[in-house]
Simulated scan of single mutants.
Amino acid sequence: MTLLPELKTRRLVLRPLRDEDAAVIAELGGKDFEIVRWLTGASWPYVEGEAETFVSKIIGSDPMQTEAVFAITLGGVFIGAVAIEAAGDLEDLPDLPTLGYWVGRAFQGHGYASEAVEAVLAWAFETYGTEAIAARVFEENTRSRGLLRKFGFKPYAMTEKYAKALDRKVANVVVCLQRSDFEALRVGG
């Protein structure tokens, strides 16, 4: 089984999930509707044990076969998560790994999500040896769409995905980032 590395940015440390992260995931994300409403797999209201089940599933699986999930930490404090799901998650781009992320509301607006996403994208392009990475974002999630656009993700398709917390299908934009675009953006600053 592949072990995830620890990734360091200017302000953050991205590390593999630990059992003790479940309680923080539940409080910071799972019990905050303004976070959960943008995720497809989380329940609302929060279901006790859902975070623990998620963390134990992630810890017990090979991240290269399922999902490589990194805890985003700031000064040792868990503030969110960023993940690369193995190819096969998206019907529209089944051969590409998929990016996903969230940051607790108290930590939004400070560039932490951008910093974490950039580090994980660089790691994923290298580790997966892929020429492109996909993402899926709710059409109405303008902040997240802006973050993806900043890194060079381009619209690829529209799809609908069931969102547990909203109990309905939601319009999603499927976007794709070419390795060459990401590398050019990083070189250009």
Rank of each mutant, 00 (worst) to 15 (best):
M158I: 13
Q108M: 09
A157Y: 01
G129T: 09
G104N: 01
N172C: 15
F182S: 09
E139S: 13
E27W: 04
L17T: 05
K150E: 08
A132E: 15
F78K: 00
E115I: 05
R15W: 07
H110F: 13
D19S: 14
R149D: 13
L185C: 07
A106E: 14
G76I: 06
Y162A: 02
S114M: 11
A68M: 09
N141I: 00
H110R: 14
W38A: 01
S180R: 09
A22E: 02
E85R: 14
K57F: 12
L166A: 11
H110T: 10
V187T: 13
A87H: 01
G41C: 10
Y101C: 00
L177H: 07
L28P: 03
A119I: 06
R15K: 11
L3P: 07
P155T: 03
G111Q: 06
D62F: 09
R149H: 12
D95N: 15
E183F: 12
F151I: 06
E67Q: 13
T66S: 14
M64F: 11
A87I: 02
N172K: 09
S144H: 05
Y112A: 01
W123Q: 03
G80Q: 02
Y128K: 14
E50R: 01
K154H: 11
M1F: 10
V117L: 06
L96H: 13
E52K: 10
R186P: 03
L12S: 03
L90Q: 11
V120G: 02
T142Y: 10
L185D: 06
L90N: 12
L121N: 03
R15S: 10
V36E: 09
V36Y: 06
G30E: 00
V47P: 03
T127H: 06
A106D: 14
V77M: 12
E85K: 14
I79W: 05
E139V: 13
R143V: 14
R168Q: 13
G152N: 01
T40F: 08
E115K: 05
V120T: 04
E139K: 15
G129S: 11
A86T: 05
K161R: 15
M64I: 08
T159R: 14
F182G: 07
A42K: 04
E140V: 15
V77L: 11
